[in-house]
Design a protein around this nucleic acid. Structure first.
Lengths: 228, 228
DNA sequence: ATTCCATAAATTTTCGAAAATACATGTTGC
DNA sequence: GCAACATGTATTTTCGAAAATTTATGGAAT
């Protein structure tokens, strides 16, 4: 793996997890020290991340962490619902045994991780399991473009969810595990309408919860990420 | 504008228009001579294009023009229909006078250009007008993410259409101008269902035509672009 | 003839410095 | 005081060469 690829992975990881505050300038000298490499691989990674809208760039003024906003969260969520419900329907129609097995095993791993009372670093593992489960649901949709957009939107919305996970704010009156199980069950039963409805509901609840928490108790979450 | 930005524009332009054959390696020495700059700005541009799936990259083996395939054309088209019909409905719901004016003027410019019996370079202008018209239809959808995905998919599918435009293969029994006009009319009349149906039909006809031409008369179009 | 290995050539990747530009600081004139 | 300007510093951008790796070439062994 080249240094540019390592830089891309590390930067993407750190940005999504809020190691840099949204909007904060990404100075090459700092990054060079932090990641122990020269400017060239860093700039290549930053250019990729720019194309993915995780960082912004301005001519001769360098790169910044892309900002967050409630508007973007709502936009990303509604587009996510559109893409993923369609992809889920397609996957249900054409999914084979391997697809079903992938759902079962990723749900199992997700629940197992969720049951561990989240130690510090476990949260990132849980997050990875959550991604893997939702990815597994769509895996058989047979559309590289939809899967790519799923990845893009997942990364974009993950940035909003992480600080809340860190704050250990559990959604009151909501059983996320049950939602995942019901979703998997509907998909495996090939009930496309029910699965799509559950998926949509799942995301609407999540974004409502996020909006509420951000507006009421963490109004500057959109500006200040955790320290790096 | 920095050299890296110039490199990005030039490379994107040349790749979409088929100046490099799909799958062809993009050697830095060649590109450096062609565009008159060093490796650094070229590599940055190539990394951005990689994130956009217009070029592929393999560790220590450099970059290649992304390949074309009928499967990808069909995938991109069906995702396009999903995204754009949704975006069009949203735009129809919330579009204001400026939106309507944008549709009228871009349609006018498109028809004007189409009526000029396409000289060599006019084809690219026509292509730009075509993009601008479709973009104008969606402009008021109020969703940066959908517009981004529109751009991505437009670029991806443009690659399939260009060689056919160059070959001046006009679709038999099809009046593309009339399709555009009907689409604009439905949008301006705020008839979302009709507009969405027309848009979908427009794309289905296009992809069918492309598939037929590629399969029957240009089977190796997917491999060999025009010389650069 | 064919596989294997060594060597050479071509290519990508990375660094370190130079060039270009933006940003901050302080100074002058009013 | 304060705007305009000059100067110096910080930062980005670009180049050219070095390092690392892959690909091609040619010869030896079987």
């Amino acid at each position: 793996m080249t240094l540019a690829e390592k830089a891309y992975d590390a930067l993407r990881h750190d940005i999504i997890r809020g190691a840099f505050a949204p909007g904060r300038p990404l100075r090459l000298a700092d990054l060079s020290e932090r990641y122990g490499m020269g400017f060239s691989p860093l700039r290549e990674a930053l250019n990729r991340l720019q194309a993915e809208r995780l960082v912004t760039a301005e001519s001769l003024r360098g790169f910044r962490v892309a900002p967050l906003s409630l508007d973007e969260l709502h936009d990303a969520t509604s587009v996510r619902i559109m893409i993923e419900t369609q992809a889920l329907r397609a996957a249900i129609q054409s999914g084979d045994d391997a697809w079903a097995a992938g759902i079962v095993s990723s749900l199992y791993a997700l629940n197992l991780q969720a049951s561990r009372s989240g130690g510090e670093a476990d949260i990132w593992t849980l997050e990875a399991r959550h991604y893997a489960f939702h990815r597994a649901l769509l895996a058989a949709c047979n559309s590289p473009w939809m899967l790519e957009f799923f990845d893009r939107l997942y990364a974009a919305t993950e940035r909003y969810r992480i600080p809340i996970l860190l704050a250990a704010t559990h959604p009151a009156g909501r059983d996320v595990q049950a939602e995942h199980s019901a979703l998997a069950e509907a998909a495996l039963a090939r009930d496309a309408d029910r699965a799509a409805a559950l998926l949509e509901e799942h995301y609407r609840k999540t974004v409502e919860h996020l909006s509420a928490v951000i507006r009421e108790s963490e109004p500057d979450l959109l500006l200040a990420g955790a320290a790096g």
